[in-house]
Amino acid sequence: MTEKEIKKTSTQSPSVIPLKAKFRVTVIFFIVLAFYLFSSFKTESSITEFIDGIGNMGELFQKFFPPNLSLFQAIWPALADTIQMAIIATTAAGILCIPLSLLAANNVTTNKILYNIVRFLLNILRTIPDLVLAVIFVALFGIGALPGIIALVIFSLGLLAKLISETIEAIDMNPLEAMQASGANTIQTIYYAVVPQVLPQFTSFVLYVFEINIRASVVLGLVGAGGIGQILDQQIKFYEYPNAMGIIIIIFALVVIIEYISTKVREAIV
């Protein structure tokens, strides 16, 4: 190297991000911005409208206060309904997801066709929102807890089977090989080598889905699928805002308590 060349390289200070990448990121930024502006224009919703609405919000908020907490006694049966719906749905989904998640794990189900069919079905299950399921089942079975429960079972089944099948795919396969080599059949191999490995995560996921189901079953009540949500919907429709606020606060407290307990239990097992 000549002296000139050495000088040249020593004064070069390359940028942290290559120019090409910088250019790409800038282009992506403007594309995203354009999408936002276009969507905002098309839906006629803008940030200024949001700010205008804040004034109304204060007004509406005043109507909600003071919340009527004295109706706890009156709404307790409906609240219990909500919890019971979540318990039934989670239990049913927890049992039904066992065969499904085994069939959707490629290390247990080595038959590619069967595995892909089950995966495909689970994907379809998960694409249907719980609210849509509830609307369909309310139309089928009429207003009440049953359509809500069925909607929750299907919704949580898709979720649980996905989470647990992925847990199964990550297990240590060595014990399975040992069981097979000792002449155990498929069911025995699963029960002795797969189950102990996924049991803690299984319990944790079921509790997690139970939390989700409590919240979801409140929302499902709004479309007539039973429980506390249905009462909340009525109170809002009758403009009984203090009652509605009382119910919201009670639901909030309930969800917080259940999540706290479930988190503690999950911490203890995993």
Partner: peptide, 20 residues
């Protein structure tokens, strides 16, 4: 399975169920 019942196997990584 009946063949495997009479042929036992020992592995390099022991292949025990660790949580059991």
């Amino acid at each position: 399975r009946s063949l495997r019942t009479k042929v036992g196997m020992i592995f390099q990584n022991y292949n025990l169920v660790k949580r059991s």
